[in-house]
Design a protein around this nucleic acid. Sequence first.
RNA 1: AGGCGCGUAACUCAGUUGGUUAGAGUGUCACCUUGACAUGGUGGAAGUCGGUGGUUCGAAUCCACUCGCGCCUACCA
Length: 930
Amino acid sequence: MEKRYDPHAIEQHWYETWEKQGHFAPSGEGEPYCIMIPPPNVTGTLHMGHAFQDTLMDTLTRYHRMKGHNTLWQPGTDHAGIATQMVVERQLNAEGKTRHDLGRDKFIDKVWEWKEHSGGTITRQLRRMGSSLDWKRERFTMDEGLSDSVHEVFVRLYDEGLIYRGKRLVNWDPVLHTAVSDLEVVSEEENGHMWYIHYPIADDKGVATEAYLTVATTRPETLLGDSAVAIHPEHPTLAKLIGKRVVLPLCERTIPIVGDEHADPEKGTGCVKITPAHDFNDNEVGKRHDLPLINVFTIDAKINEEMPEKYRGMDRYDARKAIVADLDALGLLDKVEPHKLMVPRGDRSHTVIEPFLTDQWYVKTAPLAEPAIDAVKSGKIKFVPQNWEKTYFEWMNNIEDWCISRQIWWGHRIPAWYDEAGNIYVAADEATVREKYKLADDLKLRQDEDVLDTWFSSALWPFSTLGWPQKTPELETFYPTSVLITGFDIIFFWVARMVMMGLKFMDDVPFKEIYIHGLVRDSHGQKMSKSKGNVLDPIDLIDGIDLETLVAKRATGLMQPQMRAKIEKQTRKDFPDGIPSYGTDALRFTFAALASTGRDINFDLGRTEGYRNFCNKIWNAARYVLMNTEEKDCGQEGGEIELSTADRWIISRLQETETAVERGLDQYRLDRAANAIYEFTWNEYCDWYLELSKPVLYNDDSSEAALRGTRRTLVRVLETLLRLTHPIMPFLTEEIWQRVAPLAGKTLVEGESSLMLEPFPTADESKIDTHASSEMEWVKAFVLGIRSIRGEMDIAPGKPLAILVQDASSEDQRRLNDHQTTLHSLARLESVELLAEGAEAPESATALVGSMKILIPMAGLIDKEAELQRLEKEIGKVEGEIKRLGGKLNNPKFVERAPEAVVAKEREKLEEMQTRQQQLIEQKEKIAAL
RNA sequence: AGGCGCGUAACUCAGUUGGUUAGAGUGUCACCUUGACAUGGUGGAAGUCGGUGGUUCGAAUCCACUCGCGCCUACCA
């Protein structure tokens, strides 16, 4: 074995082997366990959020596979309609073309080309993460099979009246020229203005009078589409105007003043302009008062041809300026105030979204939501952590109909046809339409131009990927899936919709549990984003990246090039030497260790470095074990075995660790599982057990049985530890296991056997050995006591010490004898001498093990002052503790009311401390007197 | 406005149903290249657990209030 752990040397090789051997496929035996990957964008790349999520899913998948379950982690990608179309359009734009130059069919060919070209990136990256996805079953939302599912669902929902087409106000993206759902609109506070405008009150003939109403608006250009002014019916001063009309400035028409409770007397000027075609609230008011919907804009959000001539063709913001100027000129502009407002922007285009009147397709969600709410209420679906169900309920109870049509080309085209009279026919394809509706062959039909929202197909993912609407064995076996692992940001987009669709079409929930994980942020808690320049690429952490490449990566292609200098500076400061290669296992362990529930994770590279070191620790522990066991008798062939206290102790601790890891994984507390592994491996197996094995292995007097016992324990504990760790760190563990397993008595088949397929360790209660544990506690206390004096007194660690022991009980004496070799080795002793009772001890530094004193003679070694200082410090600590305990025990209420065991424990502690104090003081006096 | 979450060592985080001398990693200080590992070993320093009040024999942990930060939803003429 190499002296250092090198992830590059092993990772790729093992992944290829596993995949080639078909180890990722379900075994076909055991209880089914299934996770659906949240499908990433097919043309996307892996980011830290994916890497985190994939670590969680892969760890659980590997864990259940090792537990003997019939395990499927279903891979696949989605077509990300708008995002992907935008990318391809940008490429065309760069060539000076638009998609319209190509036409729909040619453009879609281009998108497929792009998908073929870049579609492998993310799946390659998933492989780099070690993800044990069953690639043979990989699916894509635009696959034929999945498209069949989409059509089937659309048609059935339409036939049941749960999908309808309607002219309604939608969120319109004037750049992308498509409707988007309300979830795709991101509102953020921006600085704007509030304009106060006078609307002259009309007389009976519709002519402006001197009187006027003042309305306030943040969007004066929509004035062109006003169809009323609303006043609260109980408004103290203005209510009397209800029923009259006002003259709409700049337009040659009058509009009514209506009474509506939407108008809040406290807000603004107390009356509000109503633009039913360009505001969701106004639209509702319009319906109540039967007001006309007057559309002001074109699909580009320019003023349309129906509007006063002067403004036609103007962009919405130019029109705003012109209208405000004209109002001002007419003396109708009261005032302008700066105003903060929430501006809705498209999450893709970032342009301001316009409420706009168009024909769209909708899913009627209320009937679907109800069973979906019940599924969570009844516990058929559990959220982890549970409080996310509040978020879920909140949305489900206020759910709006879902606008599913998108005016783009890339996606599932809506399976609806129109004849020339505008009748709608819905079926999977044109032939079926004619058959279903018994239409004449020569009737001209035209398919709807729109495509479906990508999330429509994603909502079917848990069953469409398993073959639905066919009744496949996979569907039978793996639906409902075991758990969905995802971020809270798509509870509405995806999770809720999968639940609705699953219940509707499979008559069962799509998953039994939903594990919601946090967001991966940078080490200061900032969201990672290209524009902030703080993005980390998981692949760079695995492979490493030099500073210049990293700077170039972060500082190019920015939306705001002025950020470049700042980002570059920050990057050079944060990573003066670039990023070293940590390997996949270390990255995965970091994610696992940081994955406590319900909390965002601030990704700290320092942690990754620490866990990379941990990998090296395991590597070297294995190296030590192999050096001492390979080609030696480890008891595989039988033979007498003698287990030392240390052997029994480490085996005992291993059982406890197994329990902790299993519990952690079962409860989605990967941090606890990871910490239990870390703790055991480093602080017990490496720090103590390996050291304890040395005096046995390096001692010529050790019996064959003792040697076998130690070797066998070294190997078996390591082998088990590798199985325990494999779900989190698959590569390192596999590499080592292949060499260690035969020594632990396993028979491996070259090229076929894999740690992946080995049983996950389960604790054996009968191996928990409290006696061995207490023996070891004593040994540790002894060794630590001596090390502490060495450290503080500056005694060379290599210098053998001749020590004296005082006040040793018979138990202590027995232990001194039993563990003689161990103590000599670990504490580097030259000799141990029992001080006879009453005998005068030489001036010494003292360590206490229980009530036994270890004396290290100071002659020539220890400075008097230093020892006095050390004792003083120690006494201070003990006295503080005595004071605390004394206070507690002197409180009669404590003694009365606290459980007896607690009181007894405190008493015991106090006594111990008092003895300790006394001994330390004696010692101090003795030394002071010298 | 409503909801959720967070605030523990310089930094990143644990702390399972209230009972430990409040822990880990990184960093830091001292010593050490001893035959698994300097990606290491040994020893040390470092926290009034955001604040106030309460419940309790006992609070980082439970309750109330409060300050600070973050996120989500809704609304803003």
